[in-house]
Design a protein around this nucleic acid. Structure first.
Lengths: 116, 116
DNA sequence: GTTGGTGTTATACTTATCTATAACACTAGG
DNA sequence: CCTAGTGTTATAGATAAGTATAACACCAAC
């Protein structure tokens, strides 16, 4: 594996986003256990603390639940919460900039369809 | 001014991107002087070294030319170079992830047009 | 109780980013 | 020469991100 890291973003945020993507893609259903901190750390050749930091953010957002000695599990309602929250975050914070970049590069017709 | 900074990205990169945007939008034409390091630093309430780092990247990429004692000026061919380079970078590195996010959030129809 | 799987915490170090302050080097204009 | 505008460099410190090691705490199964 070792899906190379993107230098534009801290690793712990990329791990966090990867889990979010797995939940939205139904690769992780509600109640499923997350890949363990140690496993992710070993397979991605990253420090366990870095993984923990990513998972901690997920727990703080109420997306996963920790059960000491057992692991971390996708919370009930996680996917719904994500669809709402991530949508708003994406539309408010990221899309306007992305759209501006697309216009600037003259890629609107190609990427967004004729009417943009 | 003081266009607040985005925490997702280092300031020096945001300054760099701002200049790139100005060139692409024809707010800075080839041969025009860039806002001076000291000016940007003062108005944006940022350290001169941070601005210098952004400008240094632009110079390393051949987009601007330094004339000691005078300032920094947009290189001839800068816009064309940007349209090519930034397009490739955007299409190769950013757009695939952005597109995946859009699909994941079920925003394809809304943002990309019916056929996506 | 022991083992092996979880998450958790502590210490110490490296690196990148950003800041604060000051000084240096070059150029045009008086 | 002097001044005021450029870019440039040096030193030092603050904070965040990531690493390396090690140890601790909890739970299930043998």
């Amino acid at each position: 594996m070792d899906p190379e890291w993107n230098d534009n973003q801290p690793i712990y945020r990329q791990i966090r986003d990867r889990v979010v993507a797995m939940i939205l893609d139904d690769l992780l259903k509600e109640g499923d256990p997350l890949p363990s901190v140690r496993n992710v750390a070993t397979e991605s050749r990253v420090n366990p603390l870095t993984v923990l930091k990513a998972y901690q953010e997920l727990a703080d957002d109420g997306l996963v639940e920790k059960r000491r000695g057992l692991g971390m599990f996708v919370s009930p309602g996680a996917k719904g919460q994500l669809l709402a929250g991530e949508r708003r975050k994406f539309l408010d914070e990221q899309w306007p900039q992305i759209r501006a970049t697309i216009q600037r590069l003259g890629l609107a017709a190609e990427l967004l369809g004729k009417e943009g």
